[in-house]
């Protein structure tokens, strides 16, 4: 086994042992099942409503949950090992820093993939079993949804790693990670909305929609609403000003994943241990 896989598999085994994986899988399964079965309760019906509405409600929850889980998984990846005293030892082994960071990232990325795929798959099967929806439509839609959620998770992992290599104390990293989460899921949209309302939409009306791409959770919401067809509400209404190109959204999310990871790798190479 190469050092990369040795490190990745240790992360997997650690989270099997501390039951992170089982807990995360249960959370995703429970959440997806609840939304699928009772998502229509707000509109007065209990039971399966329709596929776009189900995915839209599911997305509104994963928008909060996935970044939080990913950031909490990643924030201490490097600074935690440093504080624990094991980083110095690891770096004296025959592996370079890029391998160490990518190995840990790979392990964490796989963890998110397992937990989300399992959770959403159960929900998709439940939906198929309890409704007469077309199987391929449901699977395709859930597949796209899972992939988008996963990509959002991986983006937030990368942001967590960036935090983890920059700060020198674990507690600081935790605080910064929470701050980043707060900005991503709440503050950013709030500010955009405030600008929109205050200027009655007249200022920067060409630029503002593109600002949505500056927040990975907004890209994710746009992406997951593609299947919901129409109905962009709140700050996402800005998305109407964007070319509705799934490729643009996927691409933006990929950039959001790659860039922090590359920056983290660069910073880690010069970090003193």
């Amino acid at each position: 086994m190469t050092p990369l896989l040795v490190i990745a598999s240790k992360e997997l085994r650690d989270s099997l042992r501390n039951r992170w994986l089982i807990a995360a899988t249960l959370v995703f399964t429970g959440l997806a099942l609840a939304i699928t079965l009772f998502g229509g309760a707000a509109s007065g019906t209990v039971g399966i409503t329709n596929l776009p509405a189900t995915l839209a409600s599911l997305a509104s929850l994963t928008t909060f949950l996935v970044p939080l889980m990913a950031l909490m998984l990643a924030y201490d990846a490097i600074v935690g090992e440093d504080e624990q005293g094991t980083l110095l030892l690891l770096l004296a082994y025959p592996l370079n820093r890029t391998t160490l960071l990518l190995g840990k990232y790979l392990g964490h990325a796989l963890l998110l993939a397992i937990a989300m795929s399992a959770g959403f798959a159960v929900a998709a099967l439940a939906l198929l079993g309890l409704s007469d929806l077309d199987a391929s439509t449901v699977l395709m839609a859930f597949g796209r949804f899972t992939l988008a959620s996963l990509l959002l998770g991986w983006v937030c992992l990368a942001l967590g790693y960036l935090i983890s290599v920059y700060v020198s104390e674990k507690s600081t990293a935790g605080g910064v990670a929470l701050g980043v989460w707060f900005i991503m899921v709440l503050l950013f949209d709030l500010i955009l909305l405030a600008v929109l309302v205050a200027t009655e939409g007249h200022v920067l009306s060409d630029t503002l929609p593109w600002l949505l791409l500056a927040n990975p959770t907004d890209i994710y919401r746009l992406l997951s609403l593609n299947d919901a067809q129409g109905a962009l509400t709140g700050v996402l209404a800005l998305g109407d000003g964007l070319p509705r190109q799934p490729l643009l959204q996927w691409g933006a999310l990929l950039v959001w994943g790659a860039l922090p990871l590359l920056l983290a790798l660069r910073r880690f190479r010069t970090r003193h241990v």
């Binding site: 624990q84 005293g85 004296a92 025959p94």
Partner: peptide
């Protein structure tokens, strides 16, 4: 990597993964 395979290192106050 060649050098590192031939080096054994014991840090001061060595610590391991408690779990």
């Amino acid at each position: 990597a060649d050098s590192r395979k031939n080096i054994g290192y014991l840090p001061e106050n060595v610590r391991f993964y408690p779990h």
